[in-house]
Amino acid sequence: MIKHTALTIAGSDSSGGAGIQADLKTMLSCGVFGMSAITAITAQNTMGVKSIMQVTPSILSDQLDMIFTDIFPEAVKVGMTFNADLIEVIATKLSEYKAKNIVVDPVMVATSGARLINEDAIDSLCTLLLKEADLITPNIPEAMILSGLSRISNAEDQLLAARIIREKYDCSVLVKGGHMSDDSMSADVLYKEDNSYFWYTSPRIDNPNTHGTGCTLSSAIASFLAKGESMEDAISKAKNYLSRAIAAGLNLGQGSGPLWHMVPSCCDNTDTMKNFSSINDNQILL
């Protein structure tokens, strides 16, 4: 029986591979009851985004009120926010209801390359929403924007970006290394509010179908936080789940296809995908 709850605040993906649809599938697979507040409706498939229509700030506000005043979420994942007006609503409501375990995936560009946030909304994202977050999960291009670095090309750059973002926004940050050029391993770094940091490394999986990986990972992290896991363990289990979803080898569509979200989320002793390591401030493990 599912006992825990989580909320996703994000855009809708008509092809089902990312956004709200991926989030709810992930939450269910990870053993929590998922709820949603939709920020925008996108017309998209595995090859790209055709059009986007935002919801009104008032309907987004009403969605959040109805959720928080009835089934209070134990964790919140925030994805596509689209514009400054919607970001202001989200930040205000998260603060008003004292939401906990807030994971912000600062979605800026889709896998296909389509822009998913207005240029003038980035400042609102940084000044209003990120200060409410417990964890931010940027990929390399997003980490460059948030940190102000012009280049992140190696582990030292990645760690530096994580440190800058943590200090800038006063929350933990997971800088994902999936966009790095190393062909054999993928490494993400968690930089926590207490200035400790952890590297998560795993073999890259040979599967070009990666539509919705960022949405899936952040939703899985939120799910495990809702179940009471520590941040380090929540990320470790979420990465295990993501690896399983990619390795399942679902092959749909003509572009970058979706993952298979209904794989088991549990971590067992035979799981070779897990390689979670804690290191001190003078070491880098890849």
Rank of each mutant, 00 (worst) to 15 (best):
A248R: 15
V76F: 01
G48W: 14
T81D: 03
D206P: 01
C30T: 14
R244V: 08
A162V: 02
N240E: 01
N280L: 07
D183Y: 00
M47D: 13
M144V: 03
M108T: 02
P208M: 15
I145G: 02
N269K: 14
D105I: 10
V175C: 12
M53D: 02
N118A: 14
A75D: 09
T46P: 11
L259I: 11
M27K: 09
I205P: 01
G177T: 00
L60M: 10
T56N: 05
L159S: 00
P208K: 14
S186I: 01
V109I: 15
R115H: 02
Y197H: 11
Y169F: 13
S278M: 11
Y191I: 06
G11Q: 06
A99Q: 04
I20A: 07
T92F: 11
E96K: 13
A22K: 15
T81H: 04
N139C: 01
E156P: 02
L149I: 12
A22H: 15
I136N: 05
T26L: 14
S172N: 12
G48R: 14
A121I: 02
L135I: 13
Q63C: 10
N282T: 13
A43W: 10
I90M: 04
A10Y: 09
S147N: 04
L130A: 01
T216R: 06
T127E: 08
T81W: 04
Q254Y: 14
V76P: 00
E193L: 11
L146I: 13
A143T: 03
L130T: 05
V175N: 13
